[in-house]
């Protein structure tokens, strides 16, 4: 399992056992984060580079922090200020980083599959920090970990994912992870925000159901995961109006009452306040949104540690 893993590209190749292993290492990392001196030497001498072709706050900062708390050397590369601006291809950039001695490359790209290309063409360890509409495995792992910490287990939980599923790599990776861990997933969104191929979801994922009506989707939910309406991916063009979407799909206190009393609320951030989520809910009593950010560092520390440990040279 973890010892032989070279890349983290999506959660489709993670077993339940491996995901549980990540949780256990993340617990140890949370303890490190709580210390007065937040630093351990586990990745001393390793070079970790982040290459983000799309903007990010949480993911990038938490990877930077995670690598630094493990004592790795961290390179933060911004494509706008590197040779990418002169037209260097992704593969060339990856080869260059490999030649410079980078060990782990954390890559975010607007094109689905870009991290796979880097993984196939170099011997770098690749972590997918989000590729197009496809996958965002580290976000999904931190979501799973956050739920697991609060509920003790994921088995049998009813998880409702609400919002822009079509453009959401977070939703896709979460569906893999949640179903692997035995949760029951309900997707709730207007049909225009549903991926075209999700008609066959039933056969691929028997545990995933589709309920476009928000009231029945929220009923009895243990976890509500809201997604950002992705303006930069033309999500707004798929809707008659934002106000209609808000009226039909916004998560607010009143609608949360349909779920179980101890429901927890997640959002990968950044939130479009008062669009997909009422601002009162963001830091409300059910919200784990801030904790997701903390857990994001712990999970990424765990992943960096596990990847570097499986190093075979």
């Amino acid at each position: 399992m973890a010892g032989k893993r070279r890349h983290i590209l999506d959660l489709d190749d993670f077993s339940a056992e491996e995901i549980t292993g990540v949780f256990s290492v993340a617990e140890a990392m949370r303890e490190v984060m709580g210390r007065p001196v937040k630093k351990t030497p586990a990745l001393r001498g390793k070079v970790v580079a982040t290459l983000f072709y799309e903007p990010s706050t949480r993911t990038k900062v938490s990877f930077d922090l995670a690598a630094k708390m493990l004592s790795a050397e961290v390179l933060s590369l911004q494509p706008q200020t590197t040779s990418v601006a002169k037209g260097e291809s992704l593969i060339d950039t990856a080869h260059t980083l490999e030649a410079l001695g980078v060990d782990i490359l954390i890559l975010r790209h607007a094109s689905s599959g870009a991290p796979y290309l880097a993984a196939q063409n170099t011997s770098l360890n690749i972590i997918n920090a989000g590729d197009g509409w496809h996958a965002h495995p580290t976000q999904a792992l931190l979501d799973l970990y956050t739920i697991w910490r609060h509920k003790g287990s994921l088995e049998g939980l009813k998880v409702t994912i609400v919002g822009d599923i079509k453009h959401s790599r977070v939703a896709r990776s979460n569906i893999w992870g949640l179903t692997t861990m035995g949760a029951k997933v309900t997707l709730c969104c207007p049909y225009t925000l549903l991926p075209a191929n999700l008609g066959n979801t039933g056969s691929l994922f028997p545990e995933v159901s589709l309920k476009p009506d928000i009231y029945s989707a929220l009923e009895g939910a243990d976890v509500v995961m809201t997604l950002r309406l992705q303006r930069e991916r033309q999500a707004y063009g798929d809707l008659p109006s934002i106000r209609e979407y808000t009226n039909l799909y916004q998560i607010n206190d009143e609608r949360l009452k349909l779920a179980k009393k101890d429901v927890v609320l997640l959002h990968p951030g950044p939130v479009n306040e008062d669009i997909e989520l009422a601002s009162a809910c963001v830091y409300g009593p059910n919200s784990l949104i801030k904790e997701q950010v903390t857990n994001g560092v712990a999970v990424r520390m765990a992943l960096l540690y596990l990847l570097s440990q499986g190093w075979h040279k």
Partner: peptide
């Protein structure tokens, strides 16, 4: 070999 997992201090 394949990792002894870290556990919490």
């Amino acid at each position: 070999g394949p990792g002894p997992l870290v556990r919490a201090t």
